[in-house]
Simulated scan of single mutants.
Amino acid sequence: MKIALVGIGKIALDQHVPALMDSPDWTLAATVSRSGRVPGVPGYGDIDAMLAAHPDVGAVSLCLPPVPRFAAAEAVLRAGRHLMLEKPPGATLSEVHALQAMARGVSLYATWHSRMAHEVAAARDWLAGRRVLGGHITWREDIRHWHPGQDWILEAGGMGVFDPGINALSILTAILPRPVHLMAAELDLPANRQAPIAARLTLSQGITADLDFRQAGPQSWDIDLRTDAGTLALRMGGNLLEIDGRPVEGRDSIMQEYPALYARMAALVRQGASEVDLAPMVLVADAFTLGRRNIVAPFDF
């Protein structure tokens, strides 16, 4: 099947393009970007021009930042093409609800790549039937390393530290036996920015979270949970699993996550189905609604 990739930035070049080039299901037939290109693939600066030039492209994957994404997504669905969304699926929940209403006769897939990490399914299976007594999420990384010069991520709609933090929430909402909800939040906003650079969350079931975009040195992507039948820990963004402090087989790599997303997208298209789970985004929206704001030192790349 032929697919087009929209938004040829860092995540597209690091993950989406390699996944598509190796995919048994997809052929990358076109790209849309203001500046990025993929060698050997026709590139366009405008999504409408791409859609008009490639009626044989049945699916489009959007890797644009959240704020400008809706207009492109709307164009794809109105053209009758299947649509795959990089996380988060939109700048607002209402945007995604609108896309769901438009997706008639085509597949709409809101992806959460961290749910495809090696040990997430195993963690979900182990937790099934157990009662979670408490836990902590530590999701701390260096914005300058992972998002160099990407000012949009700290502007309104860019989500700030929740851009990576929503990965942790996507894992948590996938593995817990019972739904979780936000009880309190504290957000640190740089004096010169509109989105938080750090956040601390209090969730139900005794779970707390520490999210920070200012981590120097080793990066931390950990989820630790206590249950009525032992402890579970996911390290390296869900790729390494520990039960009662003992390591379980895993891999220190995310390179399988995006191939798994495109395999899932292919399955949805063949089934004529859609998959849009907004639980992680609801928690983020609740944090912006309920959270106390702290103004902290200005931040510049």
Rank of each mutant, 00 (worst) to 15 (best):
Val76Leu: 07
Val76Ser: 03
Val76Cys: 13
Val76Asn: 01
Val76Met: 04
Leu77Tyr: 07
Leu77Lys: 05
Leu77Arg: 07
Leu77Met: 10
Arg78Pro: 02
Arg78Thr: 11
Arg78Ile: 01
Arg78Val: 03
Arg78Lys: 14
Ala79Asn: 09
Ala79Glu: 04
Ala79Phe: 08
Ala79Met: 04
Gly80Tyr: 09
Gly80Lys: 09
Gly80Pro: 05
Gly80His: 05
Arg81Ile: 00
Arg81Pro: 00
Arg81Val: 00
His82Phe: 10
His82Ser: 11
His82Glu: 07
Leu83Ala: 04
Leu83Tyr: 04
Leu83Pro: 00
Leu83Met: 06
Leu83Arg: 04
Leu83Asn: 02
Met84Gln: 14
Met84Gly: 15
Leu85Pro: 09
Leu85Asp: 07
Leu85Ile: 12
Leu85Phe: 14
Leu85Gln: 12
Leu85Tyr: 12
Glu86His: 15
Lys87Ala: 13
Lys87Arg: 15
Lys87Val: 06
Lys87Ile: 04
Pro88Gln: 12
Pro88Arg: 10
Pro88Ala: 11
Pro89Phe: 12
Pro89Val: 11
Pro89Gln: 12
Pro89Ile: 12
Pro89Leu: 11
Pro89Met: 13
Gly90Glu: 11
Gly90Lys: 10
Gly90Gln: 12
Gly90Cys: 09
Gly90Trp: 09
Ala91Glu: 15
Ala91Met: 13
Ala91Pro: 05
Thr92Tyr: 11
Thr92Val: 10
Thr92Arg: 15
Thr92Ser: 14
Leu93Trp: 06
Leu93Ser: 02
Ser94Pro: 00
Ser94Leu: 10
Ser94Gly: 08
Ser94Arg: 13
Ser94Tyr: 06
Glu95Phe: 07
Glu95Val: 04
Glu95Tyr: 08
Val96His: 04
Val96Leu: 07
Val96Gln: 06
Val96Met: 09
Val96Gly: 04
Val96Trp: 08
His97Glu: 15
His97Cys: 08
His97Gly: 05
His97Phe: 14
His97Lys: 14
His97Asn: 10
Ala98Ser: 15
Ala98Pro: 07
Ala98Tyr: 06
Leu99Thr: 05
Gln100Asp: 01
Gln100Gly: 14
Gln100Leu: 10
Gln100Phe: 04
Ala101His: 11
Met102Gly: 00
Met102Pro: 00
Met102Phe: 05
Met102Glu: 06
Met102Val: 01
Arg104Met: 07
Arg104Lys: 14
Arg104Trp: 01
Gly105Tyr: 06
Gly105Ile: 04
Gly105Gln: 05
Gly105Arg: 08
Val106Leu: 01
Val106Cys: 04
Val106His: 00
Ser107Tyr: 03
Ser107Leu: 06
Ser107Phe: 03
Leu108Asp: 00
Leu108Ser: 02
Leu108Ala: 03
